[in-house]
Nucleic acid binder design. Structure first.
Lengths: 362, 362
DNA sequence: CTGAAAGCGCTAACAT
DNA sequence: ATGTTAGCGCTTTCAG
């Protein structure tokens, strides 16, 4: 005979110990037991001790779901990132998790794969689980439908890494425009004029000035890049912007760019560390020396960038802090802060290493 | 006047749309509406359409928590890893997430920081949230108290990366013993005799043969290392095992080892890619060339290991698959599979690159 | 300070 | 096929 599963529910064999059980054991009412256990209301010390002893003895574990049902608060944040394997998101998630835990919140994680549809599904799940608020690095800075469902559900939302200008929500980003400017200026300052900017962001066609990009952070980088080149008197800087690199493969694209005399590229700005890796591989395959034949700079101070030959000059972003600050803002909103939305733009900083030199030719 | 919050609960202003609302709008009973919405039981097509239209119209979102309350199933897995920033865990988590999602489960993520106490807290939270089962890379392979609370709670548990022999639970690991053997044999085959093994695992004192280590995977690596050295006739191989590297700092420890004539180290086996990075830095700081002055091999085919000069010879683990397989096993258990626990040991494979040569001296 | 009772949103018997 | 009712475990009035 199997245990008579109390009522329905509880797929699992063993019945869970509930407040009712504890109350009975401690010979108090359910309400009193709950008060003692949940640490609210007023309970005499004697009773509290008795209840807690009983709870301990029975192995009572509060059911957070039931608690959420009555209080409406889950003490849980949702976070949706492009891909947790991407070191950027891993770090940001960690930053958020640390702040969340410190404030008594847990985290439900979802990957969007930078795909609107997957993102929507993820948001749906989080909402269904009644998270108290959401942290999201939106797959698109222009398509706002997904994010609106969060707002419509009345849940606080904070964006990180990418802004969505059209939405009035708290946002934490880094100053990518200025970062790109620093990187590019370093290159032009060394005499480079034909500099490629490479990103994996999806884009329908060749980039043209003024095109709207799916990610505001990449858009800002491109802007900083283009403007700096322009300031240096380089004609048609937009032609040096190469997007969609995932489609062809970063290494492949880089090879094509570097091989081809037409391009005459002497330096590249990699929009993240994975791209830098691809460029590194391409240069190596082509027998090009860095920085002799090619200068390379990149976004994100990935741990390995200091250990290659040459070490890579990068813009470091305060990634942890981006996640942490986003979580702080979210928790504040959950706490009921009704102030108008804020946008925090964190500073990036340049780490000069060995991958930049004056171009051999030109 | 603020909205009259229906009953208690629901911290948020707006009242959520419930089945009851939808039922009323569609002019059917709550039960029928629920059946149509939840896609169970039998509902006539006409009614189903009507209900779904009403739901759509009202913006109904199911409350997964309430559903869990009645069914006892949350369709959620918990995963607790050492640190999501560690690429190993990020990849394994992604593998698990993919399998979980495909099967309709979500993931709650916690970091243990490899700390028993933090791990315990994380497990407590997951249990309170009534996850259907847990995936854990245990902070300790010997202290089983934390894991037992999961088993006592009657929740399925599967271990990954690290085994806990004392516990009868499904486990997925890689064949670290053999991996270490391959790496070490490659070194001894090249004539190395004084090879250091470096790990950050905590250990009270200097390593001695037969010591129990906190992580079974490191323990297995050490075993493979020591036995291979022994087989090659190296006296006192245990003396070449250096643990606790985090305390001193990997780079610092490596420097000390490489500088000191007493050690006369000609090669090192790094227990993970972060350690390899530290060794790389140390060698560089000391002006030692790899592989001329020092051979280096490591666990984990981190993306950058192919791009350093020289590229690093590594043992690649099927990290994704470790997470994915663990999730599969867990889901099977949740499904009620009562078969005796299994242990899956996945194969690692050697990727030879350029960081190994015969030692200059010796 | 303690107890009784209602309710959170949903599902599952049990009718009809 | 549909409706009625009870119940999941907890919190929260409301009385006493």
């Amino acid at each position: 005979m199997s245990e008579p599963a109390a009522g329905h529910g509880n797929g699992n064999g063993r019945r869970e110990v509930t407040v009712t059980d504890v109350a009975a054991a401690a010979k108090v009412s359910k309400a009193t037991a709950a008060r003692a256990l949940g640490d609210y209301g007023a309970v005499s010390e004697a009773v509290r001790d008795r209840v807690q002893a009983a709870a301990e003895q029975l192995g009572y574990r509060p059911n957070a779901l039931a608690r959420t049902m009555s209080t409406g608060r889950s003490n849980t944040l949702g976070i949706v990132v492009g891909d947790i394997e991407n070191p950027f998101f891993a770090q940001a998630t960690r930053g958020a998790a640390d702040v969340a835990n410190a404030a008594g919140f847990d985290l439900i994680l979802s990957n969007s794969d930078e795909e609107a549809e997957t993102e929507q599904k993820a948001i749906g799940v989080q909402l269904a689980k009644r998270v108290d608020g959401l942290l999201v690095a939106p797959a698109s800075s222009v398509d706002t439908a997904n994010l609106r469902t969060i707002i419509d559900a009345g849940r606080p939302l904070v964006l990180f890494d990418r802004a969505v200008p059209e939405l009035e929500v708290d946002t934490v980003t880094a100053d990518n425009r200025r970062g790109a400017e620093q990187l590019t200026r370093l290159l032009t300052g060394n005499g480079h004029r034909r500099i490629a900017f490479i990103s994996t962001i999806r884009h329908s066609d060749g980039y043209r000035r003024g095109d709207t990009l799916g990610s505001s952070s990449v858009a800002d980088r491109v802007q900083g890049f283009v403007e700096t080149l322009e300031g240096a008197g380089v004609p048609d800087p937009a032609a040096f912007v190469h997007l969609n690199a995932r489609e062809e493969g970063v290494e492949q694209l880089a090879r094509r760019l570097l091989e081809d005399e037409d391009h005459g590229i002497t330096a590249v700005v990699a929009s993240d560390s994975l791209i830098a890796l691809g460029v590194f591989r391409a240069a190596r395959a082509l027998g090009l020396s860095i920085p002799g034949d090619l200068s390379l700079v990149a976004f994100d101070d990935a741990d390995w960038t200091g250990v290659t030959t040459p070490a890579v000059t990068v813009i470091a972003q305060p990634i942890h802090e981006i996640g942490a600050e986003a979580a702080r803002l979210l928790i504040r909103r959950i706490g009921g802060d009704g102030a108008p939305p804020v946008t925090h733009v964190l500073e990036q900083h340049l780490i000069e290493r060995e991958s930049v030199a004056r171009p051999a030719r030109g």
